[in-house]
């Protein structure tokens, strides 16, 4: 717990890492100053892009003692304002799951190579990033904790599967290799409460270590303090749940 007589310091900067196919991509990295050891987090930005809220969130994880790395999953789309780049990706129908998994694994391996990281790394994402966090927990063997905040399209209908999204993430549930925290708003339209129920049933069926927290009077993106969807009490409780979960699993 922080008290006012503690020393604190942080560095936050853009770095480059190796992603899928050893491609160089950029990433936003924030970590506490000092020798560590620090647990690490890969932070997956949401559909609106590698934006200001995500940079803030990355620094928030550093404030809580994590070496936090947010890869720019839209790097290959070119450069411009985060919104313009995200709009380009939106028009292309998003980023392929395989490419994202490679970038997330690259981010995790980068963190694990650092001398001040304690050998444990978690993954956090919201919106499309929540879905990708769950997928990463299933498809990659590198994560020790997974936080899925309102990840949409974890449950996908067969007609929604495409070459970029060939498998509904829920079908990977048996392969989940790390504890999972899920944060959801009961008024969300994607994922709906029914889809969250389906996901939870699948986790139970496979005996997975998970905890889901569902909030009334909250919809999609209720942590986003710059959007009308923000719900103060639910967001504060949700963040507490996130950091308690990570404390238990990574420190």
């Amino acid at each position: 717990m922080y008290t006012t007589d503690n020393y604190e310091g942080m560095i936050a900067e853009t770095v480059t890492i190796q992603g899928t196919n050893h491609d160089t991509i950029n990433a936003y990295f924030a970590r506490p100053l000092g020798p560590g050891p620090f647990p690490a987090m890969v932070i997956i930005h949401h559909m609106p892009g590698w934006d200001e809220w995500y940079k803030e969130a990355t620094r928030k994880f550093a404030y809580y003692g994590y070496a936090a790395l947010a890869p720019n999953l839209y790097f290959r789309a070119g450069h411009g304002t985060p919104e313009d780049v995200a709009a380009k990706i939106r028009a292309e129908g998003g980023v392929a799951d395989d490419q994202v998994m490679g970038d997330l694994e690259g981010a995790a391996r980068h963190l694990l190579s650092l001398p001040y990281v304690n050998g444990k790394v978690g993954v956090f994402g919201t919106c499309s990033g929540g879905r990708q966090a769950f997928l990463a927990g299933c498809r990659l063997d590198v994560f020790d904790a997974v936080v899925d905040c309102w990840g949409g399209r974890v449950v996908m209908a067969p007609e929604d599967l495409t070459p970029k999204y060939p498998v509904s993430p829920i079908n990977y549930t048996a392969d989940l290799s790390a504890p999972l925290l899920g944060i959801f708003g009961n008024e969300d339209h994607g994922p709906t409460a029914e889809q969250v129920n389906q996901h939870e049933e699948e986790l139970k069926k496979h005996g997975k270590d998970y905890e889901f927290h569902r909030y009334d009077d909250a919809g999609h993106g209720f942590f986003y303090h710059h959007r009308p969807a923000y719900r103060q009490a639910q967001a504060m409780d949700g963040w507490e749940k996130v950091f308690a979960f990570l404390e238990k699993n990574l420190k």
Binding site: R90, A91, A229
Partner: peptide, 28 residues
């Protein structure tokens, strides 16, 4: 590019978004 998805600014969970673009000139 016409989408019904999350907007960046409009105060809705989803919006009808139209991006009038010239792809050859980059995201901006």
């Amino acid at each position: 590019n016409v989408s019904y998805d999350h907007p960046f600014n409009a105060p809705f969970e989803h919006a009808l978004n139209i991006d009038f673009v010239n792809e050859a000139q980059g995201p901006g």
